[in-house]
Structures are given as structure tokens and as C-alpha cells.
């Protein structure tokens, strides 16, 4: 019943979100209709359960981490539409002539990926964190020992200050050759 609720989305709100995120009016209206259909309890907020009710997200090995990214925008256990849109905005394609204050710069995209590893939110990826995320991605298919050596190798390759952790700066440097624009952008249709 996205329609009735998309009526409730005020013109000013749309304009504000448009300014902040760069989404077009029609995209915002359509994404609002998606937001309300995910919001099963109809209270204007999404809970973790609301997200994980999407089967394709629930079977994503990193589904929990992706959902978690939405909750970093808010301090409590709910996500409202603005916060929802801010996270989605990171996945808009980068355009050459756009304002700098939109939320989809290369750095924003890298920050999103970095935070998926950073489980405790201390702005560093430790070996334990990397191991835990690797574990989520591969399940029981690769032995602990092999994962350990993958983690060790990965950290030594990018750890320039030799503190055995990956800082955001080191992460950015390691991603220098990666086509972040392609890998972290979603094709939005008009």
C-alpha cells in the first residue's frame, strides 16, 4: 500500500532528501514506497527484522553487516526514511560534474566497505575482525588455518605503519587500483 503512504511524504521532505542525497524526486517517491512496504509494523521505522525479512538479504553471507550499516546512521534500534536514504545514497554512481557534498564520493564508498570489516567501530581493522568477516564469507568451506594465513598475508600487504591493523588510510591506499565506482555503484533508473 505504498501509495497511500507516499502521499504522506511531504514535498519539503522530498526536497530536503533530494538536496542531501542527490536522488531525483521520482526515485525518492519510489524508494519511499519500498521503505513502507518493508515496514511491516507501519510505524515509519525499519527494524533489523524488517530488513532480514528479505530472503535474498537473509542469505547474503554479510547480510547482518549490511543491515548494521543502516543502524550506524541512527543511535537507536530503528532506521527512518532519511537515514535509509543516506545509506542508499552511497551507492549512487559518481558523476564528474557533481557537487562535492553529495554522499557518493569514492571516499564515502570506501568508508562503507571499510566499516563492514570494522566490527567494533574503532576505525581500525584488526586481525580478529578480518578473520571474523572472512569466516562469514566462506562459512565452513575453508579451514581456520588457511583463513589465518589469508588474514596475515592481507594485513602485512597493506600495513604500512606495522601496527598489525589496517587503518582507513591504509585501506584507501590498498584500494587504489580498484574500480570502486563500478563495484560500489548501483544502476538507478529514472
Amino acid at each position: 500500500m505504498g501509495a497511500r503512504s507516499s502521499m504522506q511524504l511531504q514535498e519539503e521532505e522530498i526536497n530536503e532528501i533530494q538536496r542531501e542525497t542527490g536522488f531525483s524526486q521520482s526515485q525518492i517517491v519510489r524508494l519511499y514506497s519500498r521503505f513502507t512496504s518493508l515496514d511491516k509494523s507501519n510505524n515509519g521505522f525499519l527494524s533489523r527484522e524488517d530488513f532480514l525479512r528479505i530472503p535474498e538479504l537473509a542469505i547474503n553471507p554479510l547480510g547482518d553487516r549490511i543491515v548494521h550499516a543502516f543502524f550506524q546512521e541512527s543511535n537507536d534500534d530503528t532506521v527512518n526514511f532519511k537515514q535509509f536514504m543516506r545509506v542508499l545514497a552511497r551507492f549512487r554512481p559518481i558523476k564528474t560534474n557533481q557537487d562535492k557534498n553529495k554522499m557518493n564520493t569514492r571516499e564515502d564508498k570506501l568508508r562503507f566497505a571499510f566499516k563492514m570489516y570494522d566490527l567494533d567501530g574503532d576505525d581500525k581493522i584488526s586481525k580478529d575482525e578480518l578473520l571474523a568477516v572472512l569466516h562469514m564469507m566462506v562459512g565452513a568451506n575453508i579451514s581456520e588455518e588457511q583463513l589465518g594465513s589469508i588474514a596475515d598475508r592481507t594485513i602485512t600487504e597493506v600495513d604500512y605503519n606495522k601496527d598489525n591493523q589496517i587503518s582507513f588510510e591504509e585501506f584507501v591506499k590498498a584500494m587504489e587500483k580498484v574500480d570502486v565506482e563500478q563495484k560500489m555503484s548501483i544502476r538507478f533508473l529514472n
Binding site: 528479505i54 551507492f91 566497505a113 548501483i186
Partner: peptide
């Protein structure tokens, strides 16, 4: 070999399914 950027496939896939 494992690359730190591999996580982006899962991230993009997950956000696509949310939309």
C-alpha cells in the same frame, strides 16, 4: 587470491536486494 575489495560484491548485492 582474497582481496579486501571482495567485500564490495556482497555489499552491493545486499543493498540491491534492499531496494
Amino acid at each position: 587470491k582474497f582481496d579486501l575489495s571482495d567485500i564490495m560484491y556482497f555489499a552491493k548485492c545486499g543493498v540491491e536486494t534492499i531496494i
